[in-house]
Computed example of a mutant assay.
Amino acid sequence: MKLIGLAGWSGAGKTTLLAKLIPCLARRGIGVSTLKHAHHRFDVDTPGKDSWVHREAGARQVLVSSGHRWALMTELRGAPEPELRELLGHLSPVDLVIVEGFKRTGHPKIEVHRAANGKPWLHPEDPAIRAVAGDVRPPSGLPWAHLDDVEAIADLALAHAVPIDAW
């Protein structure tokens, strides 16, 4: 499995880009999984459902399965948040894992930048950023693709992805 991240400030378009990038890579025959970091408390469960009742009762893990999908929810219950490397170990093998967020982790990343946000560039402070997908060229000369050119961004992702155990 190879790994590449997308890093950028909120509102830069990371999720929008991923929604276009995944099918683009799939058309090329590349199997993709994603790992998303949430900066706030989130929940994938619904109050009142059996799985929610199990978690609220104190279960550390609840696995929900159907004929269409399965999901494993793990309650940290005061334990520290797992590191990216540990989380990657929970994924089934695919060709490429795209990480959204974890911008302070040292895995190779593509910076997603939108000038209208008025936020500073991340790459001058982060040597793990290997390329930029943005609506303006970066001042650094890093490899760049316009946010609207999903094929070129897919090329950047594949060119800069590294085996998971190589970083």
Rank of each mutant, 00 (worst) to 15 (best):
P108F: 07
E81W: 04
G118H: 00
L87S: 09
H68E: 15
I110R: 04
R27M: 12
P127I: 09
K20R: 15
L17D: 06
P47E: 04
V136G: 02
W70G: 15
A57W: 09
L156W: 03
E151H: 11
S51V: 07
K109S: 05
D43H: 05
S92P: 09
M1V: 00
H160G: 02
D165R: 14
A19M: 12
A145R: 02
D149I: 09
P82T: 01
G31T: 13
P80E: 09
H90G: 14
A157K: 00
A131P: 06
G13W: 07
P82L: 12
H39K: 13
A161R: 11
T74I: 14
A79Y: 02
L142A: 13
V132F: 05
T15L: 02
G5N: 00
H68K: 15
S10W: 02
E83K: 13
V32P: 13
L35G: 02
C24H: 08
H40S: 02
D149R: 08
S10G: 12
L17A: 05
H39T: 08
G31F: 07
P93S: 07
E56A: 08
A128L: 03
R60H: 14
R27A: 15
H68P: 01
V94P: 04
R130D: 01
T46C: 11
P138L: 06
G118S: 01
A152C: 03
P163Q: 10
S51Q: 08
V32N: 08
T16Q: 11
Q61K: 13
R77M: 14
G11M: 00
G78T: 07
R55C: 04
M1P: 00
L122S: 02
K119Y: 09
R77I: 09
H123W: 07
P139W: 01
A59T: 10
P143Y: 04
G5C: 00
L6T: 00
K14H: 05
E75V: 04
T105R: 15
V32F: 15
T16E: 09
L147V: 04
A79R: 12
L96R: 00
I110E: 08
P80G: 03
L87Y: 05
R28E: 14
A79E: 10
S92M: 12
A59W: 06
T74K: 14
R104K: 12
A131S: 11
E86M: 10
I110A: 11
P93L: 04
W121H: 03
R104F: 01
P127T: 10
H113P: 10
A154F: 14
A133G: 01
A145V: 08
W167M: 10
T46H: 14
T16M: 04
H160P: 06
T15P: 08
G58Y: 10
